[in-house]
Design a protein around this nucleic acid. Sequence first.
DNA 1: TATTGTTATACTCTATAACTATA
DNA 2: TATAGTTATAGAGTATAACAATA
Lengths: 142, 142
Amino acid sequence: MSSDLAVTRRLGYLLKHAQLRLAELAEPLYAPLGVTGRQLALLTLFGDGPALSQQEGAARLGIDRTTMVALVDELEDKDLVRREVAPGDRRKRLVTLTAEGERVRAAGEDATRQAESRLLERLGEDDAERLRAALHRVVRGE
Amino acid sequence: MSSDLAVTRRLGYLLKHAQLRLAELAEPLYAPLGVTGRQLALLTLFGDGPALSQQEGAARLGIDRTTMVALVDELEDKDLVRREVAPGDRRKRLVTLTAEGERVRAAGEDATRQAESRLLERLGEDDAERLRAALHRVVRGE
DNA sequence: TATTGTTATACTCTATAACTATA
DNA sequence: TATAGTTATAGAGTATAACAATA
């Protein structure tokens, strides 16, 4: 008989493996767009709402500002984003999507929606929404 | 206004950040035991049920067998586990806990319980249990 | 002086390939 | 021939420290 903290009941295990399954479902859908899930997350971040500086973006994603430099470099090399000097503070670079970047972002969001649906397909709509809401509360600490 | 796929509503984002918050809560509790969360996960794995070989353990955790070698090395260096040649198949090494390993495992499970409680404290018992159950179904694909 | 972006560098985590011993 | 464990090595991903430009 196994303890009620068997390794597969631990939240750490469940979160990690849910992430792995999601990545398995999503990456094949992202590949034809020529971007990784991580790159698409950046397009979603910078394509949504008022333009953010690199550092503001890094803070939202919980990554280091030096990591952000490399990620923006990748997207810039693919002509999906542009760096623009922020009016009013010449130290900051606002990251904005190119027309192509916007196209990839939109296609990527469709792919994300599909992958998430497949991940959650066993749950039914209500439970799926409850899962998302619960995670949201856990992450925001509310 | 933000899209309903704003980056903070994406499952990938939520899963990653839930993991980060859990690690922030748990690691300080594990530190006095002299082990990391990952090492404790191995103690939980090998301390539960019939003895597993390294490769069986790796399969359960979804990690590579070469990674398992290094992890078991760490635990063996700390005298928390032993490798034993499997009776009936001299190629296999069964990983078993030492008395000290068992002690650390038990203390670690208390710490895990505490950290998980704090992570989920905003949810209430029912929602917390529903979250765990939903993740379990998602991960097992049932 | 402090902050933004940047570069160089190092560390962790993980996987691939090749070896050994056993089956 | 195939499998379990091992070693060496290399590739991601990420962070720390130091520097230039700007505030």
